Computed example of a mutant assay.
Amino acid sequence: MSDNVVNLRQVTKKFGSLTAVNNADLEIERGELITLLGPSGCGKTTTLRMIAGFETPTEGVVELNGNDVSDVPPYERDIGMVFQYFALFPHMTVADNIAFGLKMKGVDQSEIDDRIEEVLEMVSLPEVGDRYPENLSGGQQQRIALARSLVVEPDVLLLDEPLSSLDKKLREEMRMEIMRLHRELNVTMVYVTHNQTEALAISDRMAVMNDGEIRQVGAPTEVYQEPAGEFVADFIGSANLVDGTITSNTDSYEIATELDVDITAGPDTSVHDGNLEDGNSVTILLRPERLSLQSGSGNGTNTLSGTLREVTYLGSSAEYFVELADGTEVQVTSPVRGTIDVSPGDEVTVSFDPDAPILLGDQ
């Protein structure tokens, strides 16, 4: 059996003159949890719906287990689907909701009863089989939606923004639940979200999308530390982006910037595009957590002076927003225990080590 459960081969989906997904290529390995991540309208849900069979590609091929299923209806694909708003039948008990797919497959009632009991234990709700959805909390309803999809033992479980309708605490609990089920069942999951934190936390790999195109596929650490261009850099996490020109690339990269400040990037810095010769343009990505803030103005290598405009406290960390002389805003994130005594309007200095910059060459 192929190691890939899902293959998208040059898949395009058009709705009239609108191209929702453009020439998408993606291979999804058996047993992995991959997220389709991007802003609203980027094509991630349309991509998921083509895997599910709810949409047919305009061009290209969707494969499941090596078979072309581009024109195969959803009920003939070995998939489970969890929707954003649960989609439970309100007139059915929890047990009947879970049993629905099994009955459609003609499974014997005694086996249905056993599998309902098993899957309710799996989602930690063993006593709710005779209740109706309206008697459950939002988190419980989402667990039942998961159970209903898992009980048919699908080859692929598709999840479309499954946590977006829950509050923060429930989202975190359900995120852990999905990770636990994935680990214990080793089921292939394709998970659509626009929440970067969620995607970074749960993914084996991420496929970042924008304007209908897959911009980068990789492990969370790879996508965060080695983004494939400015969009990915800016969308995943927080980003300070500075344009510059390479003036030297011998032992390290020396870069003249639009800020009238020279920046040194050490030999161990992360470089996305290796074509960084003298005179070439480069975009410098500085993650806020890699920067340090000091009171007063300063100068020197990898030092930026400016005025503190705002401080936002987030519990465990604080975000500082610094305006440089040319109006550029730089964000610095520090643990609260490491905060300094500064207030909006104070002169401050932002500094960073030579291995902090991430260099993005010509895209």
Rank of each mutant, 00 (worst) to 15 (best):
Thr303Leu: 00
Leu125Ser: 02
Gly279Thr: 08
Glu59Asn: 09
Pro90Lys: 14
Asp346Met: 03
Asp3Leu: 15
Gln225Arg: 15
Gly296Met: 09
Glu222Ala: 11
Lys13Glu: 00
Val123Met: 02
Lys105Gln: 12
Val152Glu: 00
Leu166Glu: 07
Ala228Gly: 04
Glu63Lys: 12
Gly229Leu: 05
Val187Glu: 05
Met176Leu: 09
Asn280Phe: 03
Gly274Asp: 15
His194Leu: 02
Gly16Ile: 01
Glu177His: 03
Phe86Tyr: 15
Asn22Gly: 09
Asp114Asn: 15
Phe235Gly: 13
Ile98Cys: 03
Thr245Arg: 04
Gln140Thr: 01
Ile246Asp: 10
Phe352Ser: 00
Thr19Trp: 02
Met206His: 08
Arg290Thr: 06
Gly244Met: 02
Pro126Asn: 01
Leu324Trp: 03
Asp204His: 03
Ala99Met: 00
Tyr253Ala: 10
Asp260Glu: 13
Thr93Ala: 03
Leu286Ala: 09
Glu198Tyr: 07
Glu310Cys: 14
Glu161Gln: 06
Lys14Tyr: 02
Gly315Met: 04
Glu118Thr: 10
Arg290Trp: 03
Met189His: 03
Arg175Ile: 01
Thr93Tyr: 09
Val11Gln: 10
Val311Phe: 08
Met92Gln: 08
Gly60Ile: 11
Glu310His: 15
Ser343Tyr: 04
Phe83Leu: 09
Thr257Ile: 02
Asp167Arg: 12
Asp3Asn: 14
Glu27Ile: 12
Gly296Phe: 05
Ser203Phe: 02
Asn210Leu: 00
Val336Arg: 11
Leu150Thr: 01
His91Asp: 02
Gly298Ile: 08
